[in-house]
């Protein structure tokens, strides 16, 4: 177990270093500078120089990179060049909304896809299986942006049932219902593609498992259908699903960025876009490191979960 962990952590460190270096190089190669935000500063090159000096942007690139690295290792992600605020704070202000949205969507898409996928596999070839299969085809290929706008048009503009923007009604007392109303459409948009994607794997996985000999054993024991499904089928079908989910998370995250824009959701999305466009190096660096870190973490968690579901796997 320990060698496994240390090997994985070693890999993670290499990956994170690579990501940070690549981001740094790319940011510096890309045209533009954060101080371009104020074109009138050109009137005053010394102010630009002073501005850069105050932020240590006048140092040679390798010095900048290593001092960034050093600070990062001490948990300091630096100060945003645009917001003049610690990047860590900027991130923490936005992470909860994104987590709320992606978390709910992941949950919802699993809640949808597991029953439907199981149903589909058990009734393979039936009318409903075909209905579900065509949904998965459609769901995977609908663009988030388009679906979001469509839902807004229907539910906000036409029926006036649901709000078109934001996370809650401003100026209102806290109300769970209000949050849920705001959460509903973005969650649907973000869940559709994931659910469609998961259904395929659940269906294939369950189908595969119910062909297995041990399912005959379970039936021969006279177990109830639910017991067979939950104890024997799903536990085995969960294995490939864990991998699928962990591989899918980055897509979910990317999808969330677009969905956040469409529904004016106050998450990471806007910051990521604006930080990239305004060449806010420290922010972009922190975001990329964070995303890379989370992806590595999810993979590790997936591996551990895998091991806890499948006793045959031991990590060494």
């Amino acid at each position: 177990m320990y060698p496994f962990f240390s090997r994985r952590i070693f890999h993670a460190i290499i990956v994170l270093l690579g990501v940070s270096l690549l981001t740094f190089v790319m940011m510096n190669l890309a045209p533009g500078d954060p101080y371009h935000l104020d074109p009138e500063l050109r009137f005053n090159p010394e102010a630009v120089a002073r501005w850069k000096e105050l932020r240590q942007l006048d140092q040679p690139l390798h010095v900048q990179y290593f001092s960034w690295l050093k600070n990062m290792l001490q948990g300091d992600f630096g100060i945003s060049l645009v917001h003049n605020k610690p990047v860590w704070e900027l991130m923490m202000e936005r992470v909860p909304a994104t987590l709320l949205l992606t978390g709910t969507s992941l949950l919802v898409s699993l809640l949808i896809s597991i029953p439907l996928g199981v149903f589909s596999a058990l009734r393979k070839g039936s009318f409903w299986d075909q209905v579900i299969s065509s949904f998965t085809l459609g769901g995977v290929s609908i663009p988030n942006f388009w679906l979001g706008m469509l839902l807004i048009l229907f539910f906000s503009y036409h029926f006036k049932w649901l709000p078109a923007a934001g996370m809650r009604t401003v100026g209102m007392e806290f109300s769970l219902l209000d949050y849920l109303k705001h959460l509903l459409l973005p969650t649907v948009v973000l869940s559709v593609a994931s659910a469609a994607y998961f259904i395929r794997y659940v269906r294939a996985g369950v189908w595969e498992v119910i062909q297995q000999d041990y399912i005959i054993t379970a039936r021969a024991k006279g177990l109830g259908d639910m017991t067979i499904l939950l104890r024997h089928v799903l536990r085995n079908a969960a294995l490939p699903l864990i991998t699928v989910i962990s591989l899918h998370l980055p897509y979910l995250f990317t999808g969330a960025m677009l969905t956040e824009y469409v529904f004016s959701w106050p998450g990471m999305g806007r910051w990521i876009v604006s930080a990239t466009l305004s060449r806010d190096y420290p922010s972009v660096m922190a975001i990329n490191i964070m995303v890379a870190f989370l992806v590595t973490l999810f993979n590790l968690v997936a591996d551990l979960l895998y091991a806890s579901f499948d006793p045959r796997i031991k990590y060494r």
Binding site: Y214, T217, R231, R235, D310, P311
Partner: peptide, 9 residues
């Protein structure tokens, strides 16, 4: 081997 469920004790 195949008639026993691999993930249950």
């Amino acid at each position: 081997m195949t008639f026993l469920n691999p993930v249950l004790t």
